[in-house]
């Protein structure tokens, strides 16, 4: 079957590119003073996923589990196997209501730039993280995340910029790819709190 490059509907497995999971080494991250202090004082119990909470955004952008993308006229759904996370990417031009509550998942709007899906996410929680090694995320009202997804055959390339001037002098960037896997199953992901800390908290 031949797919259009702007047809990204279907199941996509996580794919491990040669460069690893797609986060920069912490030594190359352009921290602010506050960001470096936060990173150095990270405690595992602050990681939401160690409390059976969904990773949210930006932490969940690089998530080594399959996702299913459903394209509708007014929105694109990202359905993550991991923690049953659901994202609604509004494509109809709406903007976030002023009173939209901050959350792990935030509020996402998207548009197409030729064959690339561009998503902007705001309203994320200060409880979130950029990466589980303690890479911080402030949840400051001016913070936002830009994701770009583009299809090349059976590969979905993605990259993201985390704009969080409280913690990073320049945007923190991640990248990766997923493999089109139409025959893959999306499993239930029940998280048992008694096993979440796993001895680290």
């Amino acid at each position: 079957m031949v797919f259009s490059n702007d047809d990204i509907e279907g199941i996509w497995d996580f794919s491990w590119p040669g460069h690893g999971i797609g986060h920069p080494p912490s030594s190359s991250v352009d921290f602010t003073t506050e960001g470096k202090l936060s990173f150095d004082s990270f405690l595992p119990e602050l990681d939401p996923t160690l409390k059976c909470l969904m990773p949210g955004i930006p932490l969940g952008i690089i998530d080594p589990y399959p996702i299913e993308i459903v394209m509708q006229d007014h929105q694109i759904l990202f359905l993550y196997e991991h923690f049953h996370m659901v994202r609604r990417i509004f494509m109809d031009g709406r903007i976030a209501p002023d009173d939209w509550p901050v959350s792990l998942i935030g509020y996402s709007v998207g548009h197409w730039e030729e064959k690339t899906l561009v998503i902007k996410t705001t309203h994320m929680s200060p409880d979130n993280y950029v990466w589980t090694n303690g890479m911080p995320f402030s949840g400051d009202k001016n913070s936002y995340v830009i994701e770009r997804y583009s299809r090349e055959g059976d590969i979905l390339l993605f990259e993201a910029e985390i704009h969080d001037s409280v913690n990073y002098k320049t945007p923190y960037k991640v990248s990766g790819q997923r493999l089109f896997s139409p025959d893959m199953n999306i499993y239930e992901y029940e998280c048992l709190p008694d096993f979440a800390g796993a001895g680290v908290i």
Partner: peptide, 10 residues
Amino acid sequence: MSHHNTGTYF
């Protein structure tokens, strides 16, 4: 951990 950064804890 599978999702978590193994090197942070181990």
